[in-house]
Design a protein around this nucleic acid. Structure first.
Lengths: 228, 228
DNA sequence: CAAGAAAAAACGAACGTTCGTTAGATTTTT
DNA sequence: AAAAATCTAACGAACGTTCGTTTTTTCTTG
């Protein structure tokens, strides 16, 4: 599957995401009409990701955010109750999307090798489609409260387990050689993360997301494939 | 080489590092006597790393830093000219140490495979010996000024090149199969970084730094070793 | 070797800004 | 005209930074 096909299939438009957020946080959002809310949430979240990913969420002031999103200070507060809640909402929505998309992707009837390829590709394409979000999740995780930080760790371990489950299944079925599936899953995650954390490097080198998916998959397979 | 042997050899005591910083930044430090400066710099930098790695450098106030380091607000300003300079000094020192240690480690007369193992091990052990520093470099890079950010990127590419050079040499000598050395070096870096970025995960799983070095080396070698 | 002067270091109150947040007035939409 | 949405101005708190003072250390001298 190419990245374009993936993008068409999952339909991760900012509008859709913001509509979901609206209906899940009606009590926090003082504006009533969906169309107005979605338009402004798209604006606010995009501006937040843009500013945060340059200078960090904490260093971004609400006055900057107001300027960047062409809204007033008071206007912003119709869409969240505090700066911290703005951070929480963006993070939580990210975990939800990641979880849903990945679960859906690996829920196929295929042999472990195909499943592994599907999972690697899906995770990578997802992080490409939502690059600013993924970068944000990673870099701002420490600014979350205790409770939210636990969710971040849970999310990390959840996606890792998707990979280790596939690897363990492959070992059980004999198509993967004996190895440590948790460690291998951890390495896969590390390589996947590099794509969105060091986006500048791969852009500069003109590495496409499809090519990177191939590289990671082959790099992994060469280590776990049985020789028969 | 075990981690303990490495630690003994490189002698990366906080005191030594701070003494270097003192002599390289005498104009910024208003206190004159080495013993006093070193004692307080150790205090200040440790406190800075401790606080920053929990909540981020920007979110750390100088009042918190004063409390954590048991110094006064005014006292702190005898050891740096601004909060931003404090950040710069810590970062720069880190690049210098990394560069020196790595260059020294790979400057050996050995075949590419041994060199690769030495480089991976040295980078990993170094990041373990200076875990708070490395975490700090990574997470706070975006808070640097334009100039300092370029140095951060240069440092990233420099260490990557150490690996790609070894891989290219191995290809030229025929002991490594044909592959993309820059891409492989990038993957190695990604896996190395995971060690200090996700320290909690490996601690929890009781993975030793020696074991992780083995894993990364084998994972890489399995991909590039010729079959003869 | 004690004592007081000089130098060095540490201190903490205060400055001007900027922060997140709120409330009331104003504009836009229904 | 009523309701909804947006804006502006202002608040107290907290920020980084400075500076005059106090404390500690070092040096000088009888």
């Amino acid at each position: 599957m190419t990245f374009e096909e993936f993008s068409d299939r999952v339909r991760l438009s900012m509008e859709d995401i913001c509509r979901d957020i609206f209906y899940e946080n009606r009590e926090a959002i003082k504006v009533k009409k969906e169309a107005v809310v979605v338009k402004n949430l798209v604006n606010i979240y995009n501006a937040t990701l843009r500013l945060s990913n340059v200078k960090g969420f904490h260093a971004m002031s609400l006055r900057e955010l107001a300027r960047e999103s062409s809204m007033s200070l008071g206007g912003l507060y119709s869409y969240f109750t505090s700066k911290e809640q703005l951070l929480d909402i963006i993070q939580q929505q990210g975990y939800r999307i990641t979880r849903d998309i990945l679960a859906e992707t690996v829920d196929i009837d295929a042999d472990p090798e195909e499943k592994l390829k599907a999972a690697i590709t899906a995770h990578l394409y997802l992080s490409e489609a939502m690059q600013p979000w993924f970068y944000f999740f990673y870099m701002e995780a420490k600014n979350l409260g205790r409770e939210e930080q636990k969710k971040a760790i849970a999310s990390e371990l959840y996606t890792e387990q998707i990979f280790s489950d596939i690897l363990a299944q492959g070992m059980a079925e004999g198509c993967f050689a004996n190895h440590d599936p948790v460690m291998t899953a951890s390495l896969i995650k590390a390589m996947l993360q590099d794509w969105y954390l060091k986006r500048w490097k791969y852009s500069r080198r003109k590495v496409t997301v499809e090519a990177y998916a191939e590289v990671i998959f082959n790099f992994t397979i060469n280590n776990i494939k049985t020789n028969n």
